[in-house]
C-alpha cells in the first residue's frame, strides 16, 4: 500500500483513517448506552449521534478502500487491523464513565468535527465537499445536544455540577490533541480557534470555568485494545465468512 494514496483525490490516507477511526470508536462508545441511558428519549438521541458517526466512518473507510484498490473493504479496515494500527484521537476510545463524561466527550468531539468538516468547505474535491457538508450538519446537531446537557449539568444541581467538574478533570489530558492534531488541508490553528470559541461559549453558559488545557497527553491505548477485542471478536472468529 502506497503511503501517498489520496482519499477523495485530496486527503492523505492517514488523515482519512484518523477521521474514520475516531468516528467508529466514538460510535462504539455511544452505542454502549443503547438501552441503558438515563431516559428513553436520551437513548434515542445518543443513538442518532452514533448512527451519524458510523455512517461517516463507513463512508471514509469505503473511500480509503477504493483509493487503495488492494481488495480491502470497510470491514477489513474496521475488523482486521490490529489495535495499534488504529489512529483515532485518543479521546474517542476512553470508556464512557457517567453521563457527564459521555456528554463532555460528545461536546469536545462534535466541536472538533465541526471545525474539521467546516474546514473542508472550500475544497475543490466534490465528493469530499459533499461528504463534509453533510457531516458538518450532523456534528452541529450533536454539539447542540451535548452543549444543552453541559449547560444543564453545570447550572443544574450540586451533584450534576460536581460530576461535570470531575468529567472536565478526567478528560483534560485529551484536550491538547484536539487542539493540535494535524490534518492536511485543514490548518490546526484555525480549527483550534473555532473549537475553543464553541467550547468557551458553552462553558460560560454552563457557569463553568473556561477550558483549561494541560500539557500532558493522556493515553487510551488499553481501552482501545479492549474495545476492539470486543468489536472484532465475532468477525475474526470467522475470517472467511460473509455476513
Amino acid at each position: 500500500m502506497a503511503a501517498t494514496t489520496l482519499v477523495f483525490g485530496v486527503l492523505p490516507q492517514a488523515d482519512a483513517l484518523r477521521l474514520a477511526d475516531t468516528c467508529l470508536l466514538w460510535a462504539h462508545r455511544l452505542s454502549e448506552w443503547c438501552g441503558h441511558g438515563p431516559a428513553i428519549e436520551e437513548d434515542i438521541a445518543l443513538t442518532n449521534t452514533a448512527l451519524d458517526a458510523i455512517g461517516q466512518a463507513r463512508a471514509l473507510y469505503q473511500a480509503v478502500a477504493l483509493a487503495r484498490g488492494d481488495g480491502s473493504s470497510e470491514d477489513t479496515l474496521a475488523y482486521f487491523r490490529d489495535p495499534d494500527e488504529f489512529c483515532n484521537l485518543s479521546i474517542a476510545a476512553v470508556a464512557n464513565g457517567d453521563y457527564a463524561q459521555t456528554v463532555l466527550r460528545s461536546l469536545y468531539l462534535s466541536a472538533w468535527f465541526i471545525s474539521v468538516w467546516e474546514g473542508f468547505a472550500h475544497t475543490n474535491a466534490i465528493e469530499l465537499h459533499r461528504f463534509a457538508a453533510e457531516s458538518a450538519k450532523a456534528a452541529r446537531m450533536c454539539f447542540r445536544h451535548a452543549s444543552d446537557w453541559a449547560v444543564r449539568f453545570g447550572d443544574g444541581t450540586g451533584e450534576s455540577r460536581a460530576r461535570m467538574e470531575r468529567a472536565l478533570l478526567l478528560l483534560e489530558p485529551f484536550v491538547l490533541e484536539l487542539l493540535d492534531a494535524e490534518l492536511t488541508g485543514s490548518p490546526a490553528q484555525s480549527r483550534s480557534g473555532s473549537f475553543r470559541q464553541r467550547i468557551d461559549a458553552c462553558f460560560a453558559q454552563a457557569t463553568l470555568s473556561p477550558l483549561s488545557v494541560g500539557s500532558s497527553r493522556g493515553s487510551s491505548a488499553a481501552e482501545r485494545r479492549a474495545l476492539l477485542t470486543e468489536m472484532q471478536s465475532l468477525a475474526r472468529l470467522h475470517p472467511t465468512a460473509r455476513w
Partner: peptide, 20 residues
Amino acid sequence: SLHAADDTHAISLARDVYTR
C-alpha cells in the same frame, strides 16, 4: 407526546423521536 425538562429539550428530543 414526550417528556422533556423544558421547551428547548423538548424540541431536540422531538426531532430525535418523531422525525427519524
